[in-house]
Nucleic acid binder design. Sequence first.
DNA 1: TTTTTGCCTG
DNA 2: CAGGCAAAAA
Length: 752
Amino acid sequence: MDSPTDLFGCQSSLISAFDLYPNPSNDHDPPRRPTSSRAGDGAPYVGSNRSPRPPYPLIHHLLQPSGAPMRAMGQLHLDRYMGEEAEEEAERGAEVEEDEGVDGGVVREGIRGGGKRLNSDTLVADWGHDMLTVKRLRLESLVKGDGEIGLEEEEEEEERGRRFAERGNRERGREGRRREREELKEQLEEARERLKALQEKVWKVFGGRPAQEEERRSGGEEDGGIEEEEETVDCITEEEEEGGEIDNFSLSFLPSSPPLHRLAKQDPKVRDDKGTRDEERSLNGGGGVVLEGVLERAGVWMGCGVVRGEWEGFGGGGVGQKFAQALKQELGGAVARVIDRVLRLYTKNQSHPPSIHPSILSCRERGDEGGAGGGVWASLREERMSEGGAVAPDQPAPRPNEAPPPRPQALREQSEALPLVTRRSDSRRNTLLPPNSHPDNRNHNPLLLSHALPPLRQPHPARLPSHPALPPPSPYTPAGHGPLPLPLLHFTMQQLFARSLSHLPPLHKGDLMNSDPYMEGNPFPSTHAPSYPLLPLALIGGLDRLDGGMQHHHDRERDGGMRGGGGGGDGGMDSGMFLGPGSSQEGLSPCHLKKAKLMFFYARYPSSNTLKTYFPDVKFNRCVTSQLIKWFSNFREFFYIQMERFARQAARDNQPRDGVSCPGRDSRGVPLRLGRDTELYRILNMHYNKSNDYQVPERFMEVADLALREFYTAIQTGRDSDPCWKKSIYKIICKLDSPVPDSFRLPGCPIG
DNA sequence: TTTTTGCCTG
DNA sequence: CAGGCAAAAA
C-alpha cells in the first residue's frame, strides 16, 4: 500500500530498529486524533452527511441547465409566431419603435413583481429567454430592413418582391396561425395555472403572502434597480394587443426579488458575454438571462457569505441556510465527482494504477502519522535521540524522547506491541494521553479534518480533553463516494500530477520523501516537465533527489534532512511556484512562518535538526536557523504571556472565599481547564492558526491546559513571587512536544 | 566559542 | 515579528 501510513509502514520496518524509546508523544498514538474525531461536530461548516438531505426542488431546478418544462413549448410557438410578426413589423417600419415602448411598459409591469424566483424564476427566465429571442429576431429584422433601405434601391426592390411572395404564403398560412394562436392561448393558460401552482409553493417556502406582494407593489418599487432590471419582453404584447390575454399572464405574482435575482443582473461580469447575450442584455436589462447567472452566481455566493445564512438580511430566514446547504451539497458532490473522474483518468494512465490512486487516498483518509506505526516517528525520535543533549543542552529536564536510557532491542519490540498507556511511567504524561489513541483511530487525521470543522466554539464535551466519546464516523466518504477533504485533494492531485510530471514509476513506499517535496509547488499537470516555464526549483531539486529512494531516507536520518533542503526548494505555492528556473528560495517565506506556527501546536521546542527536517525546502544557514528558532521563541513567548494572563484572570475571578484555595481549582473546587469555547483558546487559535487551516490538535489543548493550570496554581499559591517561577513551568512545557505530522515534512505549508 | 534561550524593546 | 542583549550550557 502506498498510503502515507503504509509508506511509512514500510519505512517502519526498516526504521523500527531505531525506535529506541517509548516516546510518550509518539508511537501509535497521536493524541490529536480524538480531537479530529469530533469532526462530525463541524457539520454546520461542511456538507455533512448527517443532516438529512432536505428536499430542495428549488435549488435542484436551478442546477438543471435544461431549464423549465415550458421552455420548449414557449420557444417553439412564440418564436415561430413572433418571428412572423416581427417581419410584419419590419414592414410597418417606424411603428415598431413605438410598440416597443408600449410593450415594454406593459410587460414590465407584469414582470416587475418578480420576486423570490426559484422555480418560478426558472420559468420566468425561460419565458424571458424566449421573449428575448423573439425580440432579437424582431430587432434584427428591423435593423436589417433599415439597413437595406438605406443601402441600394436594387436590393430594396428585390426585397420587396421577395416579401410580396412571402405575403402570399402568409395569407395561406393565416388560418393555420390562427389555430396556432388558439393553441398558444391554451398553452399559456395552462402555463399560467402551473405558475400559479408554483406561486403557491414559493409562498409556502418563503413564508410570504400575496398580501405582502400587494403591499410591496402599492408601496412602489423598493429598489429602483429592480425596475430597470426587470424590463422586458415585449413580444407578448402582440398577443396582448390582439387577444387581451397576456396581461393575465403577467408574472406579477412572483414574490419580491431575492438577492439572487439582483446579483445575477447587477454583475454583468459573470454573465455570458456572447454577442447575442450582450444584445439581449442591452435590450432587456438581462431579464431573460436570469437563469444563466444562477449557477455562476451560486458559485460567487459560496464565497461571499450568503452561505453563512446572510439571507436572513434579505428576509430569507432559514431558507437562506437551506439554500446554502443545498448549494454546498450539490456543488460538493459535483466537485467530488469531477475529481473522482480525473483521478480515475489519471490512474488509468498510470502504468501501475493501484499503487497510486487508492493508496494515496487511503493513506490520507486513514491518517498518516499514526499509521507510521513508529516508523517515521521512530526515525524522528532517532534523529532527536542523535541530537542528544547537544541540541538542547540547556534544558533542565531532558526531552521525553531523549531522556530514557537506551533499552535492549527486545524490550523495544515488546513495548511497541503494548498499549501505549502501559508504557507510561510518568503519571503526568498519562493524563496527557487519551485512552482512545488507538491505531484504529488513525483515520482521524487532523489534516483531513482541518477543513471539516471549525476549531472555534466547538463544544468540548465536559471539557475532558482526554476522554471524548467514540469518534463519530468521518464526514468524508471513501474516494469516489463523496466530497474529498481539501487537503486530500491537494495531496492526491499533486501526487498524480507529480507522477505525471516526472514520468516516474508509480509511487512506492520508499519514495514519498523524494516525491512529495516538489509536488507542493506543482499543482498543475504537465507532461513536459523539463520545459515547464515556471518549473519550481523544488521540482528540479525533487527530481534530483528522486534517485535516492530509500537511501535518501537514511541520508535524511544522518544529515537531518539537509539533503532535501540543500538543493534550494521552493517555499510552497506562494514562493516556489513563481520562481523562474535559476532562482532560489533561501530565506523563509510567510508560508514558512505559517507552517512554523502550525508546527508550534506540536513542538514548542523544536531543535534545529527538527526544523531542518520539517522545512526541507529551506536552505539552512546560520541566519535562517536562528530566525526559525527565534520564531518559535516568539511563539512561546506569546503562548506564555497568554497563559499567564488568563491564569491571573482566572485567579482573580476565583478568589477563595474562605481564604483557602485548592491548587489548580477554582473557588468551587472545579479544576481549571482550557475549553475550546474559551477566549484563551480563541486567542491562541487566532495567533497560530489564523485561517483555521488546522484543527487544533488535542495534544496542544492538553499542553495549553496544563500550562494554564500550572500558571494558575503558581499564582494561586503565591509562587509567582519567586523570580524563577515561570522557569519551572517552562520546564514542564518543554517536555511535552509531540510528533509533528508527516505532512509537515513536505515543503511549503502542510495544508497547501 | 557557539548555540540556545529568555527578556526587553520597538 | 525582529533585533539586541545577557545568561546559561555545551
